[in-house]
Amino acid sequence: MRKLFAKLHLWLSLPLGIIISIICLSGAALVFERDITQALQRSLYTVVPPSEDTQPLSPSQLATHIQAQVSDSLRLSSLLLSANPHETAFASFRETGRKQLSVNPYTGEVLGWTQSYPFFQTMRKLHRWLLDPPASKGEKSVGKIIVGITTLVMVFILISGLIIWIPRTRKALKNRLSVSCTKGWRRFWYDSHVAIGFYSTLFLFVMALTGLTWSFGWYRTAAYSLFGETPSSTQVRHTDKGKDRSRKDEVKITWKDANASAPQSLKGWFYAFHTGSWGGITTKILYFLAALFGGILPLSGYYLWWKRTRRREKSQIRRD
């Protein structure tokens, strides 16, 4: 049985190993994107409450204030509010895509548009679409399909790797979890491949299973159904009186927990478990290391396969 899984592990890894490394390494680069972005744009993410007793404006009041300060051509689609009194609110519009407007939740004052840095934009395109993004949201592209298929295959690679390397004794387990640095490069990379695989597999498994919800609609539907689909947001209606309009717009209101960066919704939790934000800085560090190790695993695997192939060739030459 182990020989069968060893062959499965090898022949799935050989054609897709490089793509797995790209996905994992670019994912590692994105783990601290929000932290770095917020640090560089602190005035757009933090606010000082007027007083301890001051309550933020209601969603309807915020929506009215925001719509009065932006162009008539922009239609407010959602608000992201935080339970943390020192965090700003964010408004999204149908016409601006991912770009959000920072808003003071106590006064409704518009503070400015959030900025996404080119490095992270490139890493995101590489991570999700191999630099081949879909023409529009919800559509497919060659890069998106390749990433989805590779992530799905990665699940089987991780499972087969565990089956191959599961130790039968405590002594073998100790060897699996340690790396020898005194027995040559091949032994070093072999130990590294096995040990890194043991330490990072659980995290990589979670990343892969949650990441697939962005790749395949059928998988997302099945995953949401498995956990019991819940509304991702609460909708409220407000009337834009400041612009003298009779039309009513539906605005999605999403609340963000005060102690974590994950919105309290099913979609938010999938995102949180994919990025490691569910447990704060500790889980982010663990996810970063796991993604980094996930990018190294295929490379060390290629090296071991190349050394084993060369050794077999030399043995064949000697026999001939």
Results as ranks from 00 to 15, higher is better:
Thr182Asn: 11
Tyr271Glu: 05
Ala208Tyr: 05
Phe203Cys: 09
Cys181Tyr: 14
Leu204Lys: 07
Glu229Phe: 11
Arg187Cys: 08
Phe198Thr: 09
Val251Ala: 01
Phe270Tyr: 06
Val236Phe: 09
Gly242His: 14
Leu266Val: 04
Thr275Met: 05
Lys243Met: 12
Gly280Phe: 03
Trp218Glu: 12
Thr275Ser: 00
Glu229Ser: 13
Gly197Met: 00
Lys256Gln: 09
Arg220Gly: 04
His193Leu: 01
Phe216Lys: 01
Phe270Thr: 02
Trp189Thr: 08
Tyr224Val: 00
Phe227Val: 09
Met207Lys: 15
Leu226Phe: 09
Ser265Leu: 02
Asn259Gly: 15
Leu209Met: 11
His274Ala: 04
Phe216Glu: 01
Phe205Cys: 15
Gly276Asp: 02
Gly268Ser: 02
Arg186Leu: 14
Ser192Pro: 13
Met207Phe: 13
Ser215Glu: 04
Arg237Cys: 15
Gly197Asp: 04
Gly268Arg: 00
Asp249Arg: 11
Phe216Ser: 01
Arg237Val: 10
Phe188Lys: 13
Lys241Pro: 15
Gly228Tyr: 04
Gly279Val: 00
Arg187Glu: 11
Phe270Ala: 04
Glu250Phe: 14
Tyr271Met: 03
Thr234Ala: 09
Tyr199Ser: 05
Phe270Ser: 01
Pro263Asp: 02
Val251Trp: 01
Ser215Asp: 05
Lys243His: 11
Lys248Arg: 13
Ser192Ile: 10
Thr275Lys: 03
Thr182His: 13
Asp240Asn: 11
Ala223Ile: 03
Thr182Ala: 06
Phe227Lys: 12
Gln235Leu: 08
Leu212Pro: 08
Ala272Arg: 00
